[in-house]
């Protein structure tokens, strides 16, 4: 005996009720990446939404920056178990980008400079749940965190908030992305701890 375990303290393992199960709080902003960081000049950057019929809606950097801007402050949860609360961003709501997009699709596949992809139900990108962000904490989003622009979908694990995003393909079929084809959960709700396939 004599071994002290956290379970004997009489307190819950996580004293912070705002954290999803299995997460710990970090003041840092860890950099995770599955490959080399792409260098994307703003003057050639573009964002394209492609519907299930092949129709394209395209924004240059200047066109995107001229759209109404929002400043969401949100909690983010990485599947590698760190969470960061109250992060401040600036960007364009996906609702704004989808305003003139005529689609009956159910699924979205975000694709990125550098080749990364991630899939989400289209409903999870709308109704004030998702943004295309270019500013973090009042500063230009650094390339290692996905700059010039990344998705921000804070109600799902952070791998869904694709870095270096360049567009979204819409479709009637769900097409699993980079991590979803390698064992991670198709949806990734941190509050239901949907980390891996079958969770």
């Amino acid at each position: 005996m004599g071994i002290i375990t956290p379970g004997f303290s009489g307190r819950p393992r996580s004293a912070a009720p705002e954290l999803p199960p299995g997460q710990y709080l970090t003041p840092d902003f860890p950099v995770l990446s599955a490959g080399p960081t792409p260098k994307v000049p703003r003057d050639t950057w573009e964002f394209v939404i492609t519907t299930e019929t092949g129709a394209e809606h395209r924004w240059s950097w200047d066109e995107m920056m001229a759209l109404p801007q929002q400043t969401p402050t949100v909690d983010i949860h990485c599947v590698t178990r760190w969470s960061k609360l109250g992060t401040s961003w600036q960007g364009v709501s996906l609702d704004t980008l989808f305003e003139d997009v005529d689609t009956a699709a159910d699924y979205a596949l975000a694709h990125c400079y550098g080749g990364y992809t991630t899939n989400l139900p289209l409903d999870d990108l709308l109704d004030g749940q998702a943004w295309l962000v270019h500013t973090f904490d009042g500063e230009e989003l650094p390339a290692e965190h996905g700059g010039p622009a990344r998705l921000l979908v804070p109600h799902l694990y952070f791998w869904k908030s694709a870095k270096w995003v360049r567009g979204i393909h819409l479709g009637h079929e769900d097409t699993p992305g980079f991590w979803e084809t390698a064992g991670y959960h198709d949806y990734g709700d941190p509050w239901r701890e949907q980390r891996y396939q079958g969770d």
């Binding site: 995770l32 990446s33 599955a34 599947v79 590698t80 991670y184």
Partner: peptide, 11 residues
Amino acid sequence: VYSHAPGLVAR
């Protein structure tokens, strides 16, 4: 091998 990621990615 990129290991600062949700999995190991070998390129």
